[in-house]
């Protein structure tokens, strides 16, 4: 990827995060608008970097762990920008930008030139599978950030102290609704991602499902989000418990992503296509 663009965009995310935080701490002046501007500029540069790499590689630049993180942070910022028109969520902007900064910085630091995908694995289903899986996980990352803010706000309201923060954070209702929207988008994406992966696996490896660690962890994640969605719809599960389950679900996403990329558990998944 174009390192210059990526480094600058990462820095822009950091600036955005700090500006949003400043606006939450003392909502006077133009810090909020400044943060939004920095985030927008970062996103445009990031998009440029990813497009440049896409053009160069001829396929989605997610062949290495570093590239994957960078692409993931780009999706998260994109989703946040997409929803921020409908919600007034400065504090979420601070959390999401900080997350994007961490991920994209790691992406820049772990950058090692990108790998070549073995011809055997090339198939039209690969980009479909990878895009859906990344998109689903990015939506869950936003849901995670929303849930963290929910728990903080809930805690503040219950504790009946530190009142000044309460008015700075979004309402519980709004956070809960947003959490549900993320779930309602993320779960179908996750499901489709897993299905398209199976179809690709049939082509590449000869079978739909092979019980490798990544697949098992994904199935577990899928059941948690599925159960959460089901109970939300049928028996009024919401609020603090829904937020906690969303956080647990996303922790599993992170664990399964890291386990195949960083631990020798890799199996056939994992960014490097090494096996």
């Amino acid at each position: 990827m174009e390192l210059g663009l990526l480094e600058i965009s990462s820095l822009a995310y950091l600036i955005a995060s700090m500006a949003f935080a400043a606006h939450v701490a003392r909502p006077v002046g133009r810090w909020g608008a400044f943060g939004a501007g920095a985030l927008g500029i970062g996103f445009v540069l990031h998009t440029g970097g990813i497009l440049a790499r896409l053009y160069e590689l001829g396929l989605l630049p997610v062949t290495t762990f570093g590239e994957g993180l960078s692409f993931f942070s780009w999706l998260i910022v994109g989703i946040f920008i997409g929803i921020s028109g409908r919600y007034r969520l400065t504090v979420l902007g601070a959390v999401v930008s900080a997350l994007a900064f961490g991920l994209s910085l790691a992406g820049v630091m772990l950058y090692d030139g990108g790998a070549v995908v073995p011809a055997a694995l090339r198939s039209p289903w690969l980009p479909v599978h990878v895009t859906l899986a990344f998109l689903g996980n990015a939506v869950f990352a936003v849901a995670f950030a929303v849930s963290v803010v929910y728990l903080v706000q809930e805690n503040l309201l219950k504790s009946r102290r530190r009142s000044w923060m309460i008015t700075r954070l979004p309402s519980l209702e709004q956070l809960d609704r947003l959490n549900y929207s993320c779930l309602a988008w993320g779960f179908p994406l996750l499901t489709l991602g897993m299905l398209s992966g199976g179809i690709w696996a049939v082509n590449a490896w000869g079978r739909f499902w092979s019980w490798e660690p990544r697949e098992v962890l994904s199935l577990l994640t899928w059941s948690i989000y599925g159960g959460l969605l089901l109970y939300r719809l049928t028996s009024g599960l919401r609020g603090r418990r829904a937020a906690s389950l969303t956080i647990i679900g996303f922790s599993l996403v992170v664990v399964s992503y890291l386990s195949v990329n960083l631990l020798p558990l890799a199996g056939k998944h994992g960014g490097t296509f090494g096996s």
């Binding site: 006077v28 002046g29 309201l157 009142s163 000044w164 008015t167 309402s171 519980l172 209702e173 709004q174």
Partner: peptide, 24 residues
């Protein structure tokens, strides 16, 4: 340039503020 007017300073308006943090 200051945050002088954003805090409610009566019991009733504080209650409404809090309700709006719960229900939007």
């Amino acid at each position: 340039e200051t945050d002088i007017a954003s805090r409610s300073v009566s019991v009733a308006s504080v209650a409404v503020d809090l309700a709006q943090r719960i229900f939007e």
